[in-house]
C-alpha cells in the first residue's frame, strides 16, 4: 500500500530537529533509517502528519571509546556496528558486532539505526537486548534539556519507552564491558524478528564466572534480565558451570506472551534451549 500524505522537513542539527517537533506537535514524527516507520506508514498503521528527517545530523553518527564505556551516536547504522570489530574500540563489547548480524538483512542494516531500534522498542530487537545486557544509558535531548535514562527504566512496555514524543535520542553509552558473550535466537525464517532470543555475557576471573548478565528478548513485552539464573552462575568455577540449572531457572522465570494458543509454553521451552545454547557458545568464545 501507499502511505498517507505528510509534510517533510530535514533537520541538520539537534536543535533544528527540536524546533521542528516543538512547532509541529505530537502528530509529527522523527524519521531515522525508516526501516520500522516506513513499513508502518505503508500499511497505514502509522499516519504522521509530518516527518522530521534526522539522518542528516552528522554528529549523531559516531562510535567511540571513553574509558570502559562504548559511546554510540543514535544515528549509527546497524551495518556500521556490524563492521566495527577493532578491539581498541569494542573491547568488552564484541558481541555487538555479531548481534548486528541477526538484524534483518544487509539492505535493512545499511539504513536502520541503533537509535531508531531503541525508540521503536520491539521486545526481540537485538539492540534492545544489548542495551539491557551491557547496561546502556540513553541520552535524550528535548524541551527539558538533556537527560539520561538507564536501560532498566527505558523500556516501559511493548513498543513504549521513557522517551517523550518531543525528545530526541542522541547517544547510547554502553557501560558494562564483558569479555565473553553470545546471542542465541530462534525465528521461523532467517532474518525475521526472533520468537525468542537469549543473550549471555560474563567475565572470567581466577577461573570463575563473574558479572554474569542474561537477557531474554521477544518473550515478554520488553527485554528482561534473568536475574535468578544470573545469580546461579555468578562465581561458578569454569569446570562446573550449571548450564542446565541456569536454563531451567531462566525458563521458569519468564511470563511469555501468547498470541496463538500454545505459544507461551513454546516460548518458555525456547528460552530453556536458547539459554543453554548461549551459555555454551559464550564459554566457547573463551576457548578460542
Amino acid at each position: 500500500m501507499k502511505p498517507a500524505s505528510f509534510e517533510y522537513h530535514r533537520a541538520t542539527t539537534v536543535s533544528e530537529a527540536l524546533t521542528f517537533v516543538n512547532e509541529l506537535g505530537e502528530d509529527a514524527k522523527f524519521i531515522a533509517g525508516g526501516q520500522s516507520l516506513v513499513p508502518m506508514m505503508n500499511f497505514r498503521l502509522a499516519r504522521p502528519t509530518a516527518l522530521i528527517d534526522i539522518m542528516h545530523i552528522p554528529k549523531l553518527n559516531s562510535i567511540y571509546r571513553d574509558g570502559d564505556s562504548l559511546i554510540v551516536g543514535a544515528l549509527t547504522r546497524h551495518r556500521t556496528l556490524e563492521l566495527t570489530t577493532d578491539a581498541s574500540v569494542v573491547e568488552g563489547f564484541a558481541l555487538l558486532s555479531s548481534a548486528a548480524r541477526w538484524i534483518g538483512h544487509t539492505p535493512i542494516r545499511t539504513r536502520g539505526t541503533i537509535g531508531g531500534s531503541l525508540v521503536h522498542a520491539d521486545a526481540s530487537a537485538e539492540w534492545c537486548m544489548m542495551a539491557r545486557l551491557f547496561d546502556a544509558q540513553m541520552t535524550l535531548e528535548g524541551p527539558r534539556g538533556r537527560r539520561t535514562v538507564s536501560s532498566g527504566d527505558w523500556f516501559q512496555g511493548m513498543f513504549s519507552t521513557a522517551a517523550d514524543f518531543n525528545e530526541l535520542l542522541v547517544e547510547i553509552q554502553f557501560i558494562s564491558p564483558r569479555r565473553y558473550g553470545a546471542l542465541a535466537e530462534f525465528a521461523r525464517r532467517h532474518g525475521d524478528f526472533a520468537l525468542a532470543a537469549v543473550a549471555v555475557a560474563f567475565d572470567v576471573v581466577d577461573d570463575r564466572l563473574c558479572n554474569v548478565g542474561i537477557v531474554i528478548g521477544g518473550v515478554e513485552g520488553i527485554p528482561v534480565r534473568a536475574s535468578e539464573a544470573e545469580t546461579l552462575l555468578e562465581g561458578a568455577s569454569l569446570g562446573a558451570v550449571d548450564v542446565e540449572g541456569a536454563a531451567r531457572s531462566a525458563a521458569a522465570g519468564v511470563e511469555p506472551m501468547e498470541s496463538e494458543p500454545g505459544e507461551a509454553a513454546y516460548r518458555r521451552h525456547l528460552v530453556d534451549t536458547l539459554t543453554r545454547r548461549a551459555i555454551h557458545d559464550a564459554l566457547a568464545t573463551r576457548v578460542q
Binding site: 516506513v38 513499513p39 551495518r79 534483518g104 539492505p107 535493512i108 539504513r111
Partner: peptide, 25 residues
C-alpha cells in the same frame, strides 16, 4: 512494500537499500 521481498533493492550511494522503505525526499 514493507521490506520483506527485496524486489525493489537498488544501490543508494553504493549501499543496497530497499527502495520501498526510503522516501524520495
Amino acid at each position: 512494500e514493507h521490506g520483506i521481498c527485496g524486489a525493489c533493492t537498488v544501490l543508494m550511494d553504493d549501499q543496497p537499500v530497499r527502495a520501498c522503505l526510503v522516501f524520495g525526499v
